[in-house]
Amino acid sequence: MFEGLINFVDGVSSADNTHKPSKKKVKKYHHHEKTITERLEDDVLNQKSDSFDKFYSVVAIIMAIIIIGSLLFTVSFLPSFGDPTNPANNIVSEKYIVEGVKDTHAINLVAGMILDYRAFDTLGESTVLFIAASAVIILLFANKTKKEHEAEEKEEQKYENKNDPILRHGALLIVPAILVYGIYVVLNGHISPGGGFSGGAIMGAAIILYNLAFGDKSTSEFFSFKIYKRIIISALMFYAISKSYSFYTGANQIHSIIPKGVPGNILSSGLILPLNICVGIVVCCTMFGFYSLFDREEI
């Protein structure tokens, strides 16, 4: 099953070659900036489309004003800002606040809510990120040959100095600190503000900075496409399996073997810590994947 999933992503990325626009098509269209005389001719000849443009923009502005007006009209009838008796602060939020720590053993009530009560929702979120990364891979991944690689590298060296000492030394100082901070935010997700999503984004930023300073070659030593696939799929699978177990035992009132621990300790609150780590890994990989795909069309 595991290999099958990896092969599936492999197949998706390699099937892309057939759908790529052929080079002929690219040559066919040549957009160029119009000169003033050409613009004048366009304006004279295309008066019909010009009047349509004007009509369109006027209708668009009127529609936007109508939408703002109706929304503001609704806002003026909303209960006042910051009032504890608002209907939004009902029995649901009271249940989450009063019984949250007893049920989940997580001090951070939001983390307890999104990773325990509503953990399948968060699984959906991580899956959305994974699917978005897969879609971007389908759209942008270019299976380059070695020759194309070398040609591109030569082209790049003309424009940027890869051996910039200030950037390199600065990155050498900052990258470990950012990484450690990201790991701290992920590991303390259940006892302080933060969690998998924010910590993962911080870690992804650290890897992007490393890539900017030291180039693609040294990054691909520890983060290639193969490693990306393995890490992200195993994190998602672990999330799904462990949470299914927890829901199965919880719903059928079977004794769960996962210890809850003392609230406030790092090793506490049952599954929330491992799930936070999984989400952090998925977010980190996706962030770097997006950057890498947009920058050089591969991971």
Binding site: P84, A88, N89, V92, S93, E94, Y96, I97, V98, G100, V101, K102, I107, N108, L109, V110, M113, S192, P193, P263, G264
Partner: peptide
């Protein structure tokens, strides 16, 4: 913010809505 400073028994009146 909904991060319990009272340990196991947070009171409803001390925290904003976490949803």
């Amino acid at each position: 913010a909904p991060i319990s400073f009272e340990g196991m028994n947070p009171t409803f009146e001390n925290y904003i809505n976490p949803i």
